[in-house]
Design a protein around this nucleic acid. Sequence first.
DNA 1: ATTATTGATGAAAACGTTTACAGAAAAGCA
DNA 2: TGCTTTTCTGTAAACGTTTTCATCAATAAT
Lengths: 342, 342
Amino acid sequence: MSTASKPTISDVAAHAGVSIATVSRVVNGGEEASVGVALETRRRVREAINDLGYVPSQAGRTLRRQTSNLVALLIPDITNAFYAAIAHSVELALRDLGYAMTLCNTDEDPELQDKYLQEMQEHQVHAVILLGAVESAGLEKAVKAGVRMAFLNRRAPTETRMPFVGIDNRAAGAAVARHFLAHRYDPIAVIHGPLGSSASRERYEGFEQALRANGVELAADCIEHGDLTIDSGYTAAERMLRTGRRPAAIFCGNDLMAYGAYRRCRDLQIRVPDDIALFGFDDNPMNDWLADWLSTVRVPYDRFGSATAGVIGRMLSAADEGPRETPEEILLPYQLVIRGSS
Amino acid sequence: MSTASKPTISDVAAHAGVSIATVSRVVNGGEEASVGVALETRRRVREAINDLGYVPSQAGRTLRRQTSNLVALLIPDITNAFYAAIAHSVELALRDLGYAMTLCNTDEDPELQDKYLQEMQEHQVHAVILLGAVESAGLEKAVKAGVRMAFLNRRAPTETRMPFVGIDNRAAGAAVARHFLAHRYDPIAVIHGPLGSSASRERYEGFEQALRANGVELAADCIEHGDLTIDSGYTAAERMLRTGRRPAAIFCGNDLMAYGAYRRCRDLQIRVPDDIALFGFDDNPMNDWLADWLSTVRVPYDRFGSATAGVIGRMLSAADEGPRETPEEILLPYQLVIRGSS
DNA sequence: ATTATTGATGAAAACGTTTACAGAAAAGCA
DNA sequence: TGCTTTTCTGTAAACGTTTTCATCAATAAT
């Protein structure tokens, strides 16, 4: 049984008594669109396709078309629900555009990012979307090779003229600072992310500058940093709380680090948010259910998809109209979410 | 600048003064393996590849080889950290085997699952891994078409002779029941997942039967069900807690539904775990940080990767040795994690 | 010195599509 | 009727690989 190997377009053509060109036209013509193939012929071809269980080969198609229907999404940490939510949103939007998404986890590792970048080039992906890109040699190479790219959440770490979708992190950081000042928290502390990442840096700078503008200076022992993981939030909080002075509020570079800090506080019998206020960033979708003590900056993860689809779509036409003077930038609205301030 | 279109293997061949066959051999031969190309030639080819920035085309390769280096992972809900963790583990293992993973979110939707199944067939993926498969027509079709598949966490909903990797859900459910009995919780309640999914069904049946074996019967108003989302856990708990009788312990079909139930309890000023014990399933990686009140069954998500790599690898050789009488089954160890019972 | 044996290389044939071009039939028009 | 226009279909040429087979040189064996 089933000695027959995969049927190809020629098998279908033979079975339907037409040429392969006609089959191709039927397959590629929209559902009922009149692509210029007679109704009766189309019916016959459709029948043959069904009879044989024909599945067109993307390899053949890609080879001929010189571009695939794949779009790559590089993501730093798939287990971070915030990133996962963005990935989900992007997948939906791409699907509407007729693309299939392949998702690659870079673990914030430049080497791995480069490996994936190369691999996706090999697959002639239609575009590479970098959610939280990290600086790497391969980035420049890909730009030179003409790979379409888009940067989400974090700006391109190097000069690329590629579009960006995200929020105004600097302004958001400043907004958090103003919130802290309004509540007269003192002392104020911060656990920031890696300053090499534009998002983390801008958040921190916006926060710090807004404080300074209001005459508040961050004490040296009130500045810690982590690498955006829960663990690093825990250890950063550990270092910070080891000293005598206990901060009244900590601004964490993302929600995950705030989770870690939270855990450390509980271990020390410090109540959140009564004894200490924690502020995160991203608004992980979990928060409403599990972290009603965490105030945070809500980044509208479900709006990344359509925004990204937009820039990807525009990159096609952009090629004709010559290079833009400045890369496209879509800034999504953010929002302060204040929780637990009963 | 950069008028040159992508260099192909022939460009490299010309540049290095060899034939394309030789280039292919160099590209495919391992790093230092002696594939039968002279050292000096190899050096020249490598140089040419570098000079030109040559990137081999997977389309060409796939077309010729009749199989790609892609493995598809179908996942029901990427924002569920437990599934995400498994996906991560699988990606790592596949990478070691030299495959690239493409991740597709099925949203538990049979239609979408079928769409992806078809699409992945078009890409001639090396295998399709179904994490939490749902019953659908396309599944049978894919089996007939000779697609290699593996089922993770949930058993194949229909007869496919394809391998399974997961835990003994029935035994785990029974273990939870015994735990409840030991604590003399009364009354005992359950919020189970969709009984169409083998995992949910087996968990529930194991639980229920173990209770019955010990002379405990679940009351009708102590049985609710959800669809494994947080929301459904919330509403299920709402229905259950509306009645006068408050259960002493609820066994939830997965951690997410337990989160929802938790939220409902808090809304009603019911303390967890003091007033009511919640038991989940999966042990979402978040739990240690954010849910120290949740006891659960730990499924070793980080062991799915290598186990899956194993079955995938074995499917290659399996073809030769004729069909197995019974599909391979790998049962991973599970573990009861008891939290908050200070 | 001749013959086997080994090792490196090249020529050429697939693999399954899409699409430009051309030809044929049908339809419109005078 | 003859002419032009439209609509449909087929032929054939890429697209970039891998791999079999043959060739040829160099080395080993007699």
